[in-house]
Design a protein around this nucleic acid. Structure first.
Length: 495
RNA sequence: GGGCCGUUAACUCAGUCGGUAGAGUAUCUGCCUUUUAAGCAGAGAGUCGUUGGUUCGAAUCCAACACGGCCCA
């Protein structure tokens, strides 16, 4: 028999024994009086005599993480929902024969309730002197190793509960994730943005260029697509008069997995009427600085060993200029449409039907510029060809009023002044439709007539932006992989 | 889709040139009332990812596959 099976069997035997003795191994009537983080915060500064003078009982509940047993006494550590651990001291002469016998039967991983007083040991460790104990939940499986914890990444993702139990830094990352989203909401609420929820299941998936997931509604007998972006719905709301809206929610894209991509990911999108993409550059600087300052207390952060300064204002760079200034492509090549397309092909870029200079610009940017953009940088002057929802620039109709933000070589945000000319929008949708019919599955399969209809009612001049929340969390928690900031990242099924 | 790396006890990891599978933690037994990854003595625990192949003999060499990681498309 394997040791895992044997441990499990032994614990089930203990479970049966406990029940026979009238002990409920899943007892549910224990109310802790304190959390361990509060105990530490409040009582860590106190010395031994002060603690003993307290004359106060504490009821603590948590998981047994470590045991050091002696003949007639034991030290153990319990960890509670705060993620903190506290040492407890259980003595036979204090808790009595019966309770001590029960304690001796407990296993690492069991959830217990302790009641007792605080004191300091010889080595001055804050410790609970247990007067009475209650088994709250029997654990039937062994805990990972107490010192090295759980390092196997596959097990950490598949059994995140174990990861959270034994790797405290994981809990911290997800606590920070929650704080980041809370700060983003605070910032936007402070500027009069209204949080909304728009459909995750859409009949025509729009607002981005990506292959969607397909599902089916039985009662309506219709095909629905998990949304690739909320954009077209949020702009309908601006047409309706909700002039500042935002949504933080999941998008779904039917793509491969990577260190930066999970098929479901969290996106912030917001729209502000009577603003332009230039206003949003300022807003983005302020938003990211607000979140970082309140989360970390500084705007100078380290990401994977690289110092990054988030202090506004950030560098602004034209896409074509960046190819020369950062990518090292001679300006005469950047200007020459044919030469640039030739260079793109030489660098291994494949251009599909209808794609040319614009696509070559953005692909060469991805290859030769992006990797060098460590410090926050807005890239401007995106080609019309790759921006079907953006407003054309008034002076240069080849480009649109759009920026993307790069930090630590990653695209963090994408924003533009919205196209609100319904006829222009219809034409661009028709081009996308033609591309879909030519086999491009990343293009929408149908023309969103209702969205065009909404524009015909009049979308006020508006600017909108999307910020990848997972990537922002990666940046602010110094996490190398998107899997480190998503609790249950997508994996292949185990076999 | 392509390349490279990994997969050995529940966990963390060794395993030499192809020759009976190892350690620490955890578990079990005994001792132990202020320990700090507690200590001491002993015990049990393995489909070496899977399937084939080479070989007298495979954790080890070869192939395919699975899962994971990284890089590229």
């Amino acid at each position: 028999m394997s040791s895992a099976d044997r441990i499990s069997d032994q614990r089930r035997e203990k479970l049966a024994e406990l029940r026979q003795q009238g002990v409920d191994p899943f007892f549910n009537l224990f109310k802790p009086s304190h959390s361990i983080d509060r105990i530490k915060e409040q009582y860590e500064p106190l010395g031994g005599p002060e603690l003993e003078g307290l004359d106060q009982n504490f009821r603590l509940a948590g998981r047994l993480m470590l045991l050091r047993e002696f003949g007639k006494a034991s030290f153990c550590h319990i960890q509670d929902g705060s993620g903190e651990r506290l040492q407890a001291y259980v003595q036979r002469q204090v808790v009595g024969e019966e309770a001590f016998a029960l304690f001796k039967k407990l296993d690492l991983g069991d959830i217990v309730g302790f009641e007792g007083t605080l004191f300091r040991t010889r080595t001055q460790e804050l410790t609970l002197a247990v007067k009475s104990l209650t088994l709250l939940t029997k654990s039937l499986k062994p805990l990972p190793e107490k010192y090295h914890g759980l390092t196997d990444v596959e097990t950490r993702y598949r059994q995140r509960y174990l990861d959270l139990m034994v790797n405290p830094q994981v809990r911290e990352v997800f606590a920070k994730r929650s704080a980041i989203i809370r700060l983003v909401r605070q910032f936007l609420e402070g500027r009069g943005f209204l949080e909304v929820e728009t459909p995750m299941m859409q009949p025509i998936p729009g607002g981005a260029t990506a292959r969607p997931f397909i599902t089916h509604h039985q009662a309506l007998d219709m095909t629905l697509y998990l949304r690739i972006a909320p954009e077209l719905y949020l702009k309908r709301l601006v047409v309706g008069g909700l002039e500042r809206v935002y949504e933080i929610n999941r998008n779904f894209r039917n793509e491969g997995l990577s260190i930066q991509h999970n098929p479901e990911f969290t996106m912030l999108e917001f729209y502000q009427a009577y603003a332009t993409y230039e206003d949003l550059m300022t807003l983005t600087e302020e938003l990211v600085a607000y979140v970082a300052q309140n989360l970390l207390g500084t705007l100078k952060i380290t990401y994977q060993g690289q110092e990054i300064d988030l202090t506004p204002p950030w560098r602004r760079l034209d896409l074509r200029e960046s190819l020369t200034a950062v990518g090292g492509i001679p300006p005469e090549v950047v200007r020459d449409r044919e030469a640039l397309v030739a260079l793109a092909k030489k660098e291994g870029v494949t251009l599909r039907a209808g794609e040319g200079y614009g696509r070559a610009l953005t692909k060469l940017f991805d290859l030769m510029v992006e990797v060098h953009l460590q410090q926050p940088t807005f890239i401007l002057g995106y080609p019309l060809e790759t921006s079907p929802l953006s407003r054309k620039n008034d002076t240069d109709p080849e480009v649109v009023d759009r920026f993307e933000l790069f930090i630590a070589s990653r695209e963090m945000a994408n924003a533009f002044s919205e196209l609100n000319d319904p006829d222009d929008q219809r034409q661009r949708f028709e081009q996308q439709l033609a591309a879909h019919q030519a086999g491009d599955e990343e293009m929408p399969h149908a023309l969103d007539e209702d969205f065009v209809n909404a524009l015909e009612h009049g979308l006020p001049p508006t600017a909108g932006e999307g910020i990848g929340i997972d990537r922002l969390v990666m940046l602010l928690t110094d996490s190398p992989s998107i899997r480190d900031v998503i609790l249950f990242p997508q994996l292949r099924p185990e076999r």
